[in-house]
Amino acid sequence: MSLTREDVSYVADLARLEFSDAEVLSLAEDLGAVLDYAETLNKLDTSAVKPTEHVLPVQNVFREDEIKPGLSNEEALSNAPDSEAGCFKVPPVLE
């Protein structure tokens, strides 16, 4: 199984990444090799193995429904590249 350039471009687009044609080509090869290696697992007979729903052998970790102080508006916005009227400011988003 190998990865096509279209596959790479599609995944890159979903991740908002931009690559040159040369980069796409080399990524297709590299990622393809990684995926091919992972294919090795398919040689195993897993018909008797239960699907893994989650990797941690822990369950039901909950917190009580109680309010605790968070950050002030100033603290919340202190690292924001831009802010206005108590809000984070981002480039215009059109619906």
Binding site: D82, E84, G86, C87, K89, V90, P91, P92
Partner: peptide, 14 residues
């Protein structure tokens, strides 16, 4: 929530 009240951007209320 996204507020569209700014002249040159959108404002985010978390």
């Amino acid at each position: 929530k996204l507020l569209h009240e700014s002249a040159d951007g959108s404002l985010v209320d978390v």
